[in-house]
């Protein structure tokens, strides 16, 4: 019995020591980096832009002695923070509203996000309006013949709740998660949706631009083809800008340099790496 006690105590001591030293190391490095850094750029806003901003921040921090804090709290909250100066820069995945612009906010488009509606290659429907897309996904239209296709049932394929692409798609098309037709197939990931649509001639789904290939057929929206070019020219409507918004008086030098970095070739390369559409 005594042996157990000793062994337990020994283990505990070891464990605690390890824990303490780990904490110690953590603290040391933290204080070091904050001492060395020239400043902190605080960024908050959209959860869709967030991952991209995080990635850009990590790459930027590798080369520059600056601390970038990215908080993903939603576009509206980010815009409010940028206006009030709580955050130096706000992130938005939607265009600014008139009253938001009136507060003297500057906006910089750092990337675009494009989503395409896809069907089975054999499907005769090649063009839809946003309104028709909405009717399909909310279950108002349930047969392809109502849209000029063959007489067959529509099988809706959607991403899972919480997915950024799904949020974006619903926001642009204009329906909520509660309105999504209940019998829709729910698949996780763009690839999964593509496979499901590619193997079912009844199916319709949506994916990011980068997943487009010959196994599926892409739908034109109001006659406009889903291409990065059309997104950049703002012709293709299933797209949205990723914005950085800021007020002149709150923006520091390092903040301006970070924005310049994102717009540079190097920054835009990272943008296309993450699957968004670069601005040039």
């Amino acid at each position: 019995m005594r042996f157990i006690k000793e062994a337990t105590i020994g283990l505990l001591v070891l464990f605690l020591a390890a824990l303490l030293s780990a904490c110690g190391i953590g603290n040391d490095s933290e204080t070091e980096s904050s001492n060395d850094s020239k400043g902190t750029i605080s960024i908050s806003g959209s959860t869709s832009v967030g991952p991209l901003a995080e990635k850009l921040a990590v790459k930027y921090e590798e080369k520059n002695k600056v601390n970038i804090e990215v908080n993903q709290i939603g576009s509206s909250a980010g815009i409010t923070n940028a206006t009030s100066g709580v955050s130096e820069i706000g992130m938005s995945s939607r265009d600014l509203k008139e009253e938001e612009k009136a507060n003297g906010l500057n906006e910089v488009v750092i990337a675009y996000d494009g989503i395409v509606v896809v069907t089975h290659p054999s499907n005769k429907v090649k063009n839809l309006t946003i309104e028709q897309v909405k009717q399909i996904f909310t279950g108002e239209v349930t047969n392809w013949k109502e849209l000029g296709g063959d007489d067959m049932e529509i099988v809706v394929v959607s991403r899972e709740d919480g997915s950024g692409s799904r949020d974006a798609f619903q926001e642009i098309v204009g329906y909520t998660s509660g309105e999504l037709v209940r019998s829709s197939i729910v698949a996780s990931g763009n690839g999964n949706i593509k496979t499901t649509v590619a193997t079912n001639k009844h199916a319709v789904g949506f994916i990011s631009f980068e997943y487009i290939d010959h196994s599926i057929s892409t739908i034109k929206i109001n006659g406009v083809e889903a291409t990065a070019e059309n997104v950049l020219q703002q012709k293709y409507s299933l797209s949205r800008p990723f914005l950085f918004v800021y007020k002149e008086e709150h923006l520091t030098n390092s903040g301006q340099q970070f924005i310049d970095y994102i717009l540079s070739q190097e920054g835009q390369a990272i943008v296309s790496e993450t699957g968004a559409i670069p601005i040039k």
């Binding site: 899972e160 209940r182 019998s183 829709s184 197939i185 729910v186 698949a187």
Partner: peptide, 16 residues
């Protein structure tokens, strides 16, 4: 499964 959010009424319904 299809992962649809419905209470199945037949064997051919997709369910989660």
């Amino acid at each position: 499964a299809g992962n649809s959010l419905i209470i199945p009424t037949s064997l051919t319904d997709s369910v989660r």
